[in-house]
Design a binder for these strands. Structure first.
Length: 583
RNA sequence: GCGCCCGUAGCUCAGUUGGAUAGAGCAUCAGCCUUCUAAGCUGGUGGUCGCAGGUUCGAUUCCUGCCGGGCGCACCA
């Protein structure tokens, strides 16, 4: 049931209808067409739609409308328990209206699977290494890292949910120039000498210098000081990440696991053996242009130092190479990078291919910059002067939930305006609370139900026939769509789709809640008063038939709300956002 | 100059891999608390999907060329 009960059921019905049509020789069906069910743009057209007939028209050499008629004809009679109607609309759509009873099975499904609802086997247990944040240990995490962290965390949860085996990893860039620079900066502060021109500044360096005070005059060399400084910075980074609700499965040290282990040398040797390494102008070049990169890239400089690319080549090889070759054997690599690194992708893909893997074993998700605002005013940041708004400060001001959710309100690849004042505001303008409030509202409803002694039913004892309004279906349909939405979102590596989905679902719940009463009133006559007091401008019919709230209706609506609550909770969990019981 | 990303309502952005009469939030205007939580709901206004071609039954989506914005083009990371 990876795409959800309704879709799976309709799909198999559709499949049978096609077989039927083929058996009766009404269609040739020389090829297996992919069966895709869309949600029609207009609700009145039906519940699900397929463009199958239009896609078949060229291979069948017939008009789409004719094919649609044939399929619709085969679809209906034999499967009256699944479909209510199968309509054909020009230029060849087949609109399907599902039997009402089928929808309610979604609620049974949700009840049965609970926090697992939405899971699927799309990933087939493939092992994924998701590498993200990977901030240089030379400074605190800032907003950009926060966005990467939010996207990465959500992506990890999302991929796990649809059947991938995911390991998350923080790559520690602890070898090379910038670490030496940090050591020099720290030492300079300690000795009250000027910080090097391109060194690091800011309060955190002073702070770091003080914490490392005991190392002063201890006769340590630059490398040792750098190592200690890195460790300190990583400690802080880890604390910030934990405050953000994120833990990594592994922290991978460039120095230790790539250089000290000799894997950089080995990787380069392999490239050399394959003739993909070349000495030119006193430097060593990786012939990445063989695999479509613009030009070749230096891996070892004239001064005998390795470039960043050298260790990155070794790193990606280590992730991909099977265990019997001393690698880790991941099926799929996903890296989350700042968008300003996009020019780096072709050479990384070249590296992957150089070791004999197809380039689609590596996916790079680019995350655009975050513009920090306060009340609509841009907050300017200068990295040079060390004036950065840190992730830590933002979490302290707006909370991890709001920060994460807002980071995920746009696709990763587009720039994001993050308004601190808006993020802190606890109102409708803040989408986090909008969604969380829907969850809390249902929780509250169940609390009140318990207090009043209203029985909490399970789906097995509910008479669904009382849920006979369009409003019921407008709440159930998105629940049925949840699994396929997750799959699509995972396939595209786009967790923001889930954010949009949740906002829509929460909105539907709020609407329903205002339109319909769930629990019986405490006082005699309260319900009548309630109804007369609420003009329904939307419907425009003041003489709308007053609902009679029977115990059966209460039971059914409670189950419906329980289903919505479960899906909101499951979705928020993937985003890494809490689902509060009360607000 | 070359490469990548983007251009959709006043603003910020979605748009289910090419489908039907293009959506949401904010802003704005007009309403709704004697309620199971107003952190909420209802309605209105608002569009040449940057422009011009092309591909086909059909294009916001794919291709080409312009215009406009962002980023990258290191023996930096």
């Amino acid at each position: 049931m990876s795409a959800g009960v309704v879709r799976e059921t309709v799909l198999s019905t559709l499949r049978e209808a096609l077989n039927d049509a083929k058996a009766k020789r009404e269609l040739n069906l020389t090829i297996d067409p992919p069966l895709i069910l869309d949600v029609p743009k207009k609700e009145s057209w039906g519940d699900l739609a397929t463009t199958l007939a239009m896609n078949l028209s060229s291979s069948e050499r017939r008009a789409p409308m004719e094919i649609a008629q044939i399929i619709a004809k085969c679809l209906l009679p034999a499967h009256g328990d699944v479909l209510e109607r199968a309509d054909v609309a020009p230029p060849g759509f087949i609109n399907l209206t599902v039997k009402r009873n089928l929808w309610f099975r979604v609620l049974t499904e949700i009840e049965a699977h609970g926090s697992e609802y939405g899971s699927s086997s799309l990933g087939n247990g493939q092992r994924v290494l998701l590498e993200f944040v990977s901030a240089n240990p030379t400074g605190p995490l800032h907003m950009g890292h926060g966005r990467g962290a939010a996207v990465g965390g959500a992506l990890a949860n999302l991929l796990r949910r649809v059947g991938y085996e995911v390991d998350t990893e923080f790559y520690i860039n602890d070898a090379g120039r910038q670490v030496r620079l940090m050591a020099a900066s720290v030492t300079a502060v300690q000795n009250q000498t000027p910080v090097p021109e391109d060194g690091y500044r800011g309060v955190y360096i002073v702070d770091l210098a003080n914490r490392l005070r005991k190392t002063q005059n201890a006769g340590l060399n630059v490398g040792q000081i750098g190592k200690l400084a890195c460790e300190e910075m990583l400690k802080n980074i880890n604390i910030d990440l934990q405050a953000f609700g994120l833990t990594f499965d592994r922290w991978f040290s460039e120095q230790k696991e790539l250089f000290d282990s000799g894997k950089v040398e080995q990787a380069l040797k392999t490239l050399k053996d394959k003739g993909l390494l070349e000495e030119r102008d006193g430097a060593l070049w990786f012939k990445s242009s063989v695999f479509g990169d613009d030009k070749d890239r230096v891996v070892k400089k004239q001064d005998d130092e390795f470039t960043y690319l050298a260790s990155d080549i070794a790193y990606h090889r280590d992730k991909l190479e099977r265990r019997d070759k001393r690698g880790r054997g991941y099926d799929l690599l996903i890296n989350i990078w700042g968008a300003d690194h996009h020019g780096y992708i072709p050479r990384m893909e070249a590296a992957v291919q150089a070791f004999g893997y197809p380039k689609d074993r590596l996916h790079v998700v680019l995350v655009q910059i975050v513009n920090l605002l306060r009340g609509g005013q841009r907050i300017t940041m200068s990295k040079r002067a060390g004036e950065m708004v840190t992730l830590k400060e933002v979490i302290e001001e707006v909370g991890a939930d709001a920060a994460k959710f807002i980071f995920l309100t746009r696709r990763a690849d587009s720039q994001l305006d993050f308004d601190l004042e808006l993020a802190r505001r606890q109102s409708a303008e803040n989408p986090v609370y909008y969604v969380q409030y829907a969850h809390a509202r249902v929780a509250s409803l169940f609390r009140v139900a318990a207090e009043r002694g209203v029985p909490i039913p399970s789906t097995a004892e509910v008479d669904w026939s009382v849920l006979d309004s369009p409003d019921d279906l407008s709440l159930i349909k998105p629940l049925a769509d949840y699994p396929s939405m997750l799959e699509a979102s995972a396939k595209a590596l786009e967790p923001h789709r889930l954010t949009y989905y949740l906002q829509d679902l929460a909105g539907r719940l709020h609407t329903y809640y205002y339109k319909h009463r769930i629990l019986p009133p405490v006082l005699e006559g309260e319900l009548e008063r309630h109804d007369t007091l609420k003009p329904l401008a939307a419907e425009g019919d003041q003489d709308r038939k007053r609902e009679v709230l029977t115990p059966a209706l209460t039971a059914a609506r409670l189950c419906l709300f329980r289903g919505v609550q479960t899906v909101i909770r499951n979705g928020l969990e993937i985003l890494g956002v809490s689902a509060p019981e009360r607000m």
